[in-house]
Design a protein around this nucleic acid. Structure first.
Lengths: 194, 194, 194, 194
DNA sequence: AATGAATGAGGTTTCATTCAT
DNA sequence: GATGAATGAAACCTCATTCAT
C-alpha cells in the first residue's frame, strides 16, 4: 500500500522541501512541478494558487505537529513528565517530517498565511501556553511569561534540528535525552539541592 | 547629531528592515528605494546588484555582532563571567540593531551569500566554538558537541528577541537577567547542590 | 501551403527584419514580440535571451547563404563559371532572404556573436578564400590578397542590394548580369585584348 | 600648436571611435565621457543630447569627406583622371580619419539622423551622381544607373577599408593603386583592346 | 565651466497563472 | 484529468538626462 504517491501528494512533498530550502518567494511554481514530476498546470488542479498551496501545506504540517505533541498526552502526569512528552512529541514530528518542522518554524509569521493558518498555529501555541501556565502555577516552571518560556525551549529545539536537517549533526537517542534535560533545566525552577 | 543620513545609509537601513521583515526574495528593489526615499537607480550606484546589497548588509551586521560580543571580553574571567559577557553582548547588539540581529539569524545559510559573507559568519561561530570547548574542558559546560550548545543558547535567545522585535514582548533588565540564567542553566553542568 | 507560421518562425522572422533595420542594440525585445504578434515572454520560451536569439538568427542565415552559394557548385567548371555561380548564389540568397543577407553583412563582426557564430561565418569566408586562391594561381584572378578580392566583390554586391532592400532600386535580370560583369572585371586579370 | 585637445574635441573623438566600434545604440553617454576623460555632464554642455552629438559628428565627417574628395578636383581633367582623384580623395579621408569613414558608411541611413545630416550626405552623393552621369554620357562609364555604379565602387572601397580598420590588412601605395584599377575596371566601359 | 550623484523611464528577463489540446 | 505553451504584469537593472555643488 502507498506504492505510488498520488499527484497531489507528490506536489505537496515537493513544495514542502522547496519552501523549506528556498523559502516561499524563492520557490517558483515550475520548480515545484519539476520536482514533483507533474505538469505546471496540474498544480492548479489541486490548489487554487501558490498561496493556497503554502497555506494548505502549513495547516497540514501544524496538524501533524499538533498530533505528534498531543498523542498520548499524559493529562494526569507530572509537569516534568508532560514536558518530556511534549519534547519527544516534537522530536517525533521533526524526525518523520524534518522539512515540515523547519517549514512551520520559519513560516509561522509569514505575510501570506491566511487567518485559518494563523489560527491553527495559535491553537498549538495555546496548548503550550496552558502547559506553561500550569507549571508556573505549581512553582515548577520558572515564573516568566509563558511566551518567553516557550520561545526558549522551542528556539533551542529548532536550532538543534536545523543542524540535523543541514546534515551538520547526527542525532542519537542519548543526545536527544541530554538536550531534553538542557531544555528542562532552562525553564524549570532549581532548588538548592537540584 | 545624525541630522541627515547619507543616501547609502538610507538604502542600507531600508533594505535591512525589509529583508528582516519579508526576506530577500520577498523584497523588491523598488520597495527598498521607496522606503529609503531614493530613486530605484540610486541603489545601483552604491551596490552592484541586489545580491551585492544583501551581502554587504550581512557582513556589516556580522561585524557589528562580532564587535558587540567581543568588546571588553574578559579573557581572564571565569567561564561563567564570559558567558554572561557574551550573552549581554548579544543583547547589546540586538537592542541597538534589532533588525540586524534577526536578519543575520534568518539569512546565515542563504543561497545568495557569497564566500566572504559565509566566512565572516564562520569566524563569529568559531569564537563561540572555542568558548564552548574551553568550558567543556574545564567541566563547567555540559559535555555535548559545541554546535549543539551554541544552537541551544543562540536558538533560545533568537526566539525571545523575535518576540521583542514583533512587539509581543517588552524587554526589561530583570527579564534579561532571568533569561540569561535560563540559558546558562541549559548548558552548564549542575552539581547536586546547584 | 505555409498557411500558418509557428510561433518560433514568427519570432525569427520579426527579429530578422528588425535587426536588419535597426541593428541589435536598437531593437527591443517587446518590439520583436509586437511584430511577431506574440507575448514578450514567449520569446524566452524559444531563446534563452536576446543574445541567443541574434546568434541563432545569424547562424541560420549564414547556413542559408552557404547553401545558396554551394548548391550545384561547378567543381569542374572554369574559374569564370565558378565566379558566376557564386555571384548568382548570392543573388539567389539575397532575393529569397533580403533581410537575412543584409543582417549577415552588417552583423558579421558584432561583439555579441558567440564563437559558434563566428566560426560559421569563417567557414563561408574560407570557401571564398580557397576560390580566390585557385583563381590567382591560374593567373585568371588578379594577384591581390584574397581578402581584398573578396572584399571588393562582396562590398560591391552588398551595397547594391542595400539599395534594392531600401526600395531605391528594382533589380532586373539584365542589370544583375551587368553587375556580375562589373564584379568579374574588377577582380579578373585583363589581357590586352580584353 | 594643438598641444591639448579641447574638451569638445576629446568628446567628439571619443564618440566617433565608439560609434564606429559599437554603433549608436550600443554606445552609452557615460562610455563616451569615460573615453574622453570628461564628466558625463560635460557632454551636455557641448551637445544638446546624444542625438545632437551623433548628428554633429556625422555632418562633421561628411564635410571632411567632401573636402577630401573635392579638394583640387580636376574639373577639366578626363573622366579617368577624375575617377582617380575621387578615389584617392576617399583614400586620403579614410587614412586620416579611418573611424570617421567607417562611421559615415555605417550610419548614413540611420533613423536618428536629422534632415540636415541627410541633406549633407545627399550633397556628397549628388556630386558622385553628376560625375557618373557625365562619364556615362561620354561613353566611358558603363551605362548603368548612377546609384549602382556608386554602390559598386563605394561598396568595394568600404569593405577594403573595413579590413584595414580591423587590422586585418596593411595598406600600401601599390595595393591602393591596384584596388583603384579594380574599381575603375568595374565601372568603365571595356573596349576590345582594353 | 565642469562634475558626477541622482533619477525614472524603459530595457531585459522571470514567473504565476490560464487554456487549448 | 493532465499538460505545457503562451501570456503580460512585474521583477531586476541600465542609461539618457538633470542639477546641486
Amino acid at each position: 500500500m502507498e506504492a505510488t504517491l498520488s499527484k497531489r501528494d507528490k506536489i505537496v512533498e515537493a513544495a514542502l522541501v522547496l519552501f523549506a530550502e528556498r523559502g516561499y518567494d524563492g520557490t517558483t511554481v515550475p520548480m515545484i512541478a519539476d520536482k514533483a514530476e507533474v505538469g505546471t498546470g496540474t498544480i492548479y488542479r489541486y490548489f487554487e494558487n501558490k498561496e493556497a498551496l503554502v497555506n494548505a501545506l502549513f495547516q497540514d504540517c501544524v496538524k501533524q505537529f499538533n498530533d505528534a505533541v498531543k498523542r498520548d498526552y499524559p493529562d494526569l502526569g507530572s509537569v516534568r513528565e508532560q514536558f518530556k512528552h511534549v519534547f519527544f512529541g516534537m522530536v517525533r514530528f521533526a524526525k518523520e517530517n524534518i522539512h515540515g518542522f523547519y517549514f512551520v518554524d520559519t513560516h509561522s509569521n509569514a505575510r501570506y498565511l491566511d487567518p485559518e493558518s494563523r489560527e491553527s498555529f495559535r491553537q498549538l501555541m495555546d496548548f503550550l501556553h496552558a502547559y506553561a501556565a500550569k507549571g508556573i502555577e505549581q512553582g515548577i516552571i520558572r515564573p516568566l511569561q509563558a511566551d518567553v518560556l516557550i520561545a526558549i525551549v522551542f528556539g533551542a529545539f529548532t536550532k538543534v534540528f536545523t543542524l540535523i536537517r543541514a546534515g551538520k549533526l547526527k542525532e542519537t537517542p542519548e543526545m536527544l535525552l541530554q538536550i531534553e534535560e538542557c531544555c528542562w533545566d532552562a525553564v524549570s525552577v532549581h532548588t538548592k539541592n537540584g
